[in-house]
Simulated assay, not measured.
Amino acid sequence: MSSLMRPLALLSLLLSAALFGFFYAWVCSTMWGLDMADPRVAIAAMQAMNASVRNAVFAPAFFGTAPILLLTAFVMMREAQRSAALWFGLAGTVVALLAVALTAAFNIPMNEALAGVAVPQDIEAARIIWADYSPQWQVWNQIRTVTSGIAVLFVGIGIMRLGTA
């Protein structure tokens, strides 16, 4: 058994769980809190959070999870761990297509559009902006949350399958 296989499996688990946890926190607290806040505050806070997420702490989970999962699957295939490799490959595909690609296609453009909005002084104008942004953004976030959670489950199944041909 390759000396890289188990460390890669654990790194895959860690990165997958970090990505899922990040998206999950937005679902169950952050967006609900912003939706209850003054919409002017919600807009300004979301702009600040979106600007701050581009950092070296988040980048490995967002940009590294799918490649690490696929590398892990490749190493496992070379080590004749086909069953485990299948699950890691599925996890990598799910993350790449249904978490990262959806984020790039939907959430990021919405975030960039919101970043260009001047926070209005008028609360009703702010309500309209937030109502146009938040529900749609949350739908895409819920999809990427569920799919990244499925990827974590796939990694767990893959780890359980290690040692079986």
Score class of each variant (00 low, 15 high):
Ser2Met: 10
Ser3His: 08
Ser3Asn: 11
Leu8Asn: 01
Ser12Phe: 04
Leu14Ala: 15
Leu15Pro: 01
Ser16Tyr: 05
Ser16Phe: 08
Ala18Ile: 12
Leu19Tyr: 04
Gly21Cys: 07
Gly21Ile: 10
Phe23Thr: 11
Tyr24Ile: 12
Ala25Met: 11
Trp26Tyr: 15
Val27Asp: 14
Val27Glu: 09
Ser29Phe: 15
Thr30Ile: 15
Gly33Cys: 07
Leu34Tyr: 13
Met36Asn: 04
Asp38Gln: 00
Pro39Ser: 08
Ala44Leu: 03
Ala45Gly: 06
Ala45Asn: 02
Gln47His: 13
Ala48Thr: 08
Met49Cys: 08
Asn50Thr: 07
Asn50Gln: 10
Val53Gln: 14
Arg54His: 12
Asn55Gly: 11
Val57Met: 12
Val57Gln: 10
Ala59Arg: 15
Pro60Tyr: 09
Ala61Arg: 05
Phe63Leu: 15
Phe63Glu: 06
Phe63Ser: 13
Thr65Asn: 04
Leu71Trp: 07
Thr72His: 01
Thr72Phe: 03
Met76Ala: 10
Glu79Ser: 08
Ala80Ile: 05
Gln81Pro: 00
Ala85Gln: 02
Leu90Phe: 11
Leu90Arg: 03
Ala91Gln: 03
Thr93Glu: 04
Val95Asp: 05
Ala96Trp: 07
Ala104Thr: 07
Ile108Arg: 13
Asn111Gly: 14
Glu112Gln: 15
Pro120Trp: 09
Pro120Asp: 06
Asp122Cys: 01
Ala125Trp: 02
Ala125Gly: 08
Arg127Phe: 00
Arg127Gln: 00
Ile128Leu: 11
Trp130Gln: 06
Trp130Leu: 06
Trp130Glu: 00
Ser134Lys: 12
Gln136Ala: 12
Asn141Cys: 03
Ile143Met: 03
Thr145Phe: 04
Thr147Trp: 00
Ser148His: 11
Gly149Trp: 14
Ile150Met: 06
Val152Met: 01
Val155Asn: 00
Ile157Glu: 01
Met160Arg: 13
Leu162Ile: 03
Thr164His: 13
